[in-house]
């Protein structure tokens, strides 16, 4: 049976490690401050007898890395191609969480969103319409409270369905200002010619446009090592299927 890999991504301090612990039964350290986790950790979780490999990532404010812990997270999300990227959003500060979510949706279709800290949101008098959000974003949105183990069953069910392809997503793709869009489309075309279908051309085009030199270096590195190792593997997963107009 195929083993599925699920990466936990999100802003710092949204409860990724707490969710990781709740699912895997392991003991990642948690703390109420941004930057507690700085390295990758992985563990296994069996749901309905299907093994899922869960990867806990450091938190990141965007896919544009600033510090080394964020780079670890960025590289994993972008280059390791997990079967599902499970975005953990903080229900009490959705605005900033969504900034990252929109970027991840640009890059891959295999995204599942969970709204964590729902208990806190309730305490703070926030009412969140997950259905509405899901409709707007084009991916499932599941309210949970990782620390109280609430909503984990629904989450796991949805995860499995996404892994097996039962749920098809139609992620919202950001549209930028006209002049920027024009540049993106041009770059995207060139990039997909150079890189082929295994890389998310539109997303990369945006990174090239705003000159993310660290990412470009990481990409070149990746290409060089693939060249040695013989081809890109795991191309059925996330990265290959994203992107806008091109197909080849």
């Amino acid at each position: 049976m195929k083993e599925y890999t699920i990466a936990l991504a999100g802003n710092p301090n949204t409860g990724k490690s707490t969710l990781f612990n709740a699912l895997t039964g392991l003991k990642q350290h948690t703390g109420n401050w941004a930057g507690k986790t700085v390295t990758l950790a992985s563990g296994y979780y069996r749901y309905k007898n299907i093994p899922l490999k869960i990867v806990d990532l450091p938190g990141t404010y965007s896919l544009f890395s600033n510090s080394e812990d964020e780079e670890v997270a960025r590289d994993y999300i972008v280059f390791e191609k997990p079967d599902v990227t499970l975005l953990v959003l903080d229900a009490t500060s959705l605005e900033r969480s969504l900034n990252l979510a929109l970027q991840v949706l640009e890059m891959t279709d295999q995204v599942l969103i969970c709204l964590n800290l729902m208990d806190e949101a309730k305490k703070k008098g926030l009412k969140i319409n997950a259905k509405q959000l899901s409709k707007n974003l084009g991916v499932p949105v599941i309210p949970i409270s990782a620390r109280n183990r609430e909503g984990l069953d629904v989450l796991s069910d949805t995860l499995l369905k996404m892994c097996s392809g039962t749920i098809k997503t139609k992620p919202y793709k950001m549209k930028y200002r006209e002049e920027i869009e024009a540049k993106i489309i041009k770059l995207e075309k060139e990039l997909s010619e150079i890189l082929g279908p295994d890389y998310p051309a539109r997303w990369l085009a945006i990174r090239f446009l705003d000159g993310d030199s660290k990412l470009i270096a990481a990409l070149k590195n990746k290409l060089a090592s693939n060249g040695e190792g013989g081809g890109v593997h795991g191309s059925t997963t996330a990265l290959g299927r994203s992107g806008g107009g091109h197909s080849c």
């Binding site: 959705l94 605005e95 900033r96 969504l98 900034n99 929109l102 703070k124 008098g125 926030l126 009412k127 969140i128 319409n129 997950a130 509405q132 959000l133 707007n136 974003l137 950001m174």
Partner: peptide, 14 residues
Amino acid sequence: KSRELCSKSVVIQD
């Protein structure tokens, strides 16, 4: 866009 999405799906009660 984030703000727009929030205003559609989040209601502040208190």
